[in-house]
């Protein structure tokens, strides 16, 4: 039997953690872009459009992420293509993040006083101009802390992709456990690596919230 040193375990987990980081980045950025597009639809004056996006959000917030991944994995397969795990994982995570980010950002946009909309409208600005020059710059400041906070959820969400067969940190944990028979050490390390990824994000979200709040109060 091969002996595994602690370093062997940690090294393999760290190598796999690169995929967790990559997948998190792709999901967060992809989800952010889609979320921004959905945000415009969500706050659109067209009732049916805003409602449709509302249902989309409800659907993704009301069902388990794991189910969404299974559906993406087997749903894409229905089109007769062989679906690689990374594609299904990435797609499910992007759709899921977009739903949450849209809802977070909608709250931020709606917290901007109505007068701002009216003032900019009275200056003859179109809807896009209003968003671009008046609403979004103000909403951005409020949106940063919860958005950074949500990135933690994305990193943790990537752990579920191991279930549909994408090899990242969690899957590597299972594989390494099966090779070393040291579940306590391995999952302990896995948890610590996730913690090392997530904690700085959580902390900066808290700090940003405090900072931006102080700035807000001085207005």
């Amino acid at each position: 039997m091969i002996e595994f040193t602690t370093w062997d375990i940690l090294r393999n987990l760290l190598l796999a953690a690169r995929w967790t980081v990559l997948l998190s980045l792709v999901s967060f950025i992809g989800g952010g872009l889609l979320g921004l597009a959905l945000l415009f639809a969500r706050i659109s004056p067209r009732r049916w459009l805003s409602k449709a996006i509302g249902y989309y959000i409800e659907l993704f917030q009301g069902t388990p992420l794991l189910m969404q991944m299974f559906l993406a994995f087997f749903g894409l397969g229905l089109f007769g293509v062989d679906v690689p795990a990374w594609l299904a994982a990435g797609m499910a995570l992007i759709l899921w993040s977009a739903a949450f980010l849209t809802e977070i950002w909608r709250g931020c946009v709606e917290s901007i006083a109505r007068g701002q909309w009216e003032a900019s409208a009275s200056l003859g600005m179109g809807r896009l101009q209003q968003m671009r020059y008046v609403i979004l710059p103000q909403a951005l400041k409020i949106a940063i802390p919860p958005t950074v906070g949500f990135s933690v959820q994305v990193v943790k969400g990537t752990a579920l992709t191991s279930i549909i067969g994408f090899v990242e940190l969690s899957k590597a944990g299972t594989v390494v456990t099966n090779a070393t028979f040291q579940p306590f050490t391995v999952y302990g390390f896995v948890a610590l690596i996730y913690f090392a990824l997530c904690w700085p994000l959580s902390k900066s979200s808290q700090i940003l919230e405090r900072k931006l709040n102080v700035a807000h109060r001085n207005h």
């Binding site: 933690v152 752990a159 579920l160 969690s170 299972t174 999952y187 904690w199």
Partner: peptide, 17 residues
């Protein structure tokens, strides 16, 4: 610790670890 690690890993740690 709990808020910054995935539920799946907490579960594996409890059940397998």
């Amino acid at each position: 610790l709990i808020r910054n690690t995935p539920f799946l890993i907490q579960l594996f740690f409890i059940f397998f670890g």
